[in-house]
């Protein structure tokens, strides 16, 4: 139970911590943005509790696939908002965002992420704490998972802010692309389980090398969306969203650099 608790909690915390760290690093020059992100965390915790507490009723929606549909919608919304953040904050573009726009997107993004990941932890704890024999190991495992997840988030934040402005944006966009792609792939899996997307053939099977349930598997799942047996649609979804975010975040920059080079050459 101890290791299971660590891996499950770490996976969920890490997904949210990565997103929050990148958002905090990207918006550190915006006044009061930290406050909005903290508000998003608070709303996310409340959302996670409500989602977990009413999971019975939610599951009954959409012909008893409510949980899958609601989770998938949240994940797809996260993908879209992450792409929007990459587009808006692209430093090469003229200031196309307004502070109001960012102050709305950031807390919503954080709230959705924490609601989804938090609800999973809530349900796991609720399910396992009923058996008092495991209480200690579940709590200790959850604490260790939370500690590692948040610590990785803190280290990532300072690593990002310590980078030079050029590589800082590129690395942040790559992390955003991984988060967006991961969320899209997870949403497709849930929609396939709910029969909203038809089942497609398996892209590969690497379960013999690394299972998803192992600690490394779960870590990679959180970091890059690793799956031992992904379907073709999941693969396509992952790549499309990740590419979209990379294009939103980086392309104009390349054009901009070229323009600057040309201007210098002249």
């Amino acid at each position: 139970m101890f290791l299971n608790s660590i891996t499950l909690v770490l996976q969920e915390i890490l997904e949210a911590a990565l997103l929050i760290s990148v958002l905090l690093a990207l918006t550190q020059s915006f006044p009061k943005m930290k406050r909005w992100i903290i508000l998003g965390i608070f709303l996310g915790v409340v959302g996670a509790y409500l989602f977990g507490a009413y999971i019975g009723s939610i599951s009954e929606w959409f012909d008893y696939v409510g949980q899958e549909i609601v989770s998938a919608s949240m994940q797809l919304s996260i993908s879209v908002l992450v792409a929007l953040i990459a587009f808006l904050l692209n430093p090469a573009r003229a200031r196309v965002y307004s502070t109001v726009m960012l102050s709305t997107i950031c807390p919503v993004l954080v709230m959705l992420s924490i609601t989804r990941e938090g609800a999973e932890i809530f349900l796991y704890l609720q399910g396992n704490m009923t058996n008092s024999v495991y209480t200690r190991s579940v709590l200790a495992g959850s604490a260790i998972g939370t500690g590692i997840g948040i610590s990785i988030g803190v280290v990532l934040f300072y690593l990002l802010t310590g980078l030079s402005s050029k590589s800082y944006w590129v690395v942040s966009t790559v992390v955003l692309a991984l988060i967006g792609g991961n969320m899209a792939a997870q949403a497709i899996l849930l929609l396939t389980q709910a029969d909203w997307i038809t089942y497609s053939a398996q892209l590969w099977d690497s379960s013999a090398v690394l299972t998803e349930q192992s600690l490394t598997g779960r870590l990679l799942y959180s970091l890059v969306g690793y799956e031992a047996t992904p379907s073709i649609v999941q693969g396509v979804g992952y790549l499309s969203v990740a590419l979209l975010i990379l294009i939103c975040g980086l392309t104009t920059k390349i054009k901009y650099i070229e323009k600057r080079r040309q201007r210098h050459a002249q």
Binding site: I148, V155, Y158
Partner: peptide, 24 residues
């Protein structure tokens, strides 16, 4: 803040990973 957070985060990471390894 930088010193406090990074030192605590590094300490947690190393200690907890060592704890997992020790547990195994």
């Amino acid at each position: 803040t930088f010193l406090i957070l990074t030192v605590i985060a590094t300490l947690i990471l190393f200690n907890f990973i060592a704890a997992i390894q020790g547990y195994r």
